[in-house]
């Protein structure tokens, strides 16, 4: 069996440091397996959040060799084992202990987004009719597992800490899923522009790169929302059309 060195962040909100753990690795192992092995044999007090171990719960988000990833979906065979593998908590959220961060800010942000508001029912029995083609587009956004890796990698949060002005890529995806829904009639564009800070996104596509569900966050959610904001607030021709059409 080969051996590998795992350089794991140990500490809490007051401070911490990396600690090296050397262990044997077997074919097929993922980083979360290694962390569990370290936890059981070398550091019983190592804190790590995990649940499904199948890339569907979004709990084991961390930064592996500096890139946000799910520990359960990162195979050791994908990593250069000749060098120490760094495993550290998400840097955009307050640290609780070791690899566990407090992501509760995200849940508070979600409450700020206007919920789904459907149009009047299409049929007398109170049901609606939707075309599959129209639902397909928003279906991609429903794959989100809320691992918050996209929030972690976004430099607007990570480097500039604009938590009070910017909701982050996860919630642009969430807003896009609602805003583009064929039944929804709520208007979120004003909020997206004014209080949720879509203009702060400068399209670096880091969120798309780290998404474990391969959601095209930038191309399919953020840019279409930016274009809708342009329609509503910045395009003089569109404004003119709305005047002639009698819209506000």
């Amino acid at each position: 069996m080969a051996t590998a060195t795992f350089r794991v962040w140990r500490g809490d909100a007051k401070g911490g440091k990396f600690q090296d753990f050397v262990m044997e690795v077997a074919p097929g192992m993922v980083v979360l397996d290694a962390i569990h092995e370290i936890q059981s044999s070398q550091a019983n007090d190592l804190a790590v959040r995990w649940n499904c171990k199948a890339g569907k719960c979004g709990s084991c988000s961390a930064e592996i060799n500096g890139m946000p990833k799910l520990m359960c979906m990162t195979r050791l065979s994908q990593l250069p084992l000749e060098k120490p593998i760094t495993v550290e908590p998400m840097r955009s959220f307050p640290l609780v202990k070791d690899l566990v961060t407090d992501v509760s800010w995200n849940f508070r942000v979600k409450e700020q987004i206007k919920p789904f508001r459907p149009r009047k029912p299409d049929a007398p029995d109170g049901t609606w009719r939707m075309d599959q083609k129209d639902v397909d587009r928003v279906q991609e956004f429903r794959k989100c597992i809320e691992c918050f890796l996209c929030q972690d990698v976004c430099h607007v949060l990570r480097n500039h800490h604009l938590y009070d002005q910017f909701i982050g890529p996860r919630f642009f995806v969430y807003a896009a899923a609602l805003e583009m829904h064929p039944l929804d009639v709520e208007d979120r564009l004003k909020d997206l522009r004014k209080t949720q800070g879509i203009g702060f996104c400068n399209i670096t596509k880091c969120c798309t790169k780290v998404c474990p569900e391969s959601i095209h966050i930038t191309d399919n959610a953020i840019i279409p929302l930016k274009e809708r904001v342009v329609d509503q607030f910045y395009d003089p021709l569109k404004k003119l059309f709305r005047v002639f059409q009698g819209d506000k």
Binding site: F93, D102, W105, H161, Y163, D164
Partner: peptide
């Protein structure tokens, strides 16, 4: 918009 609980360190 909600604020985050702990001021985070900026990296260089």
């Amino acid at each position: 918009m909600p604020e985050i609980d702990v001021p985070l360190e900026r990296v260089g």
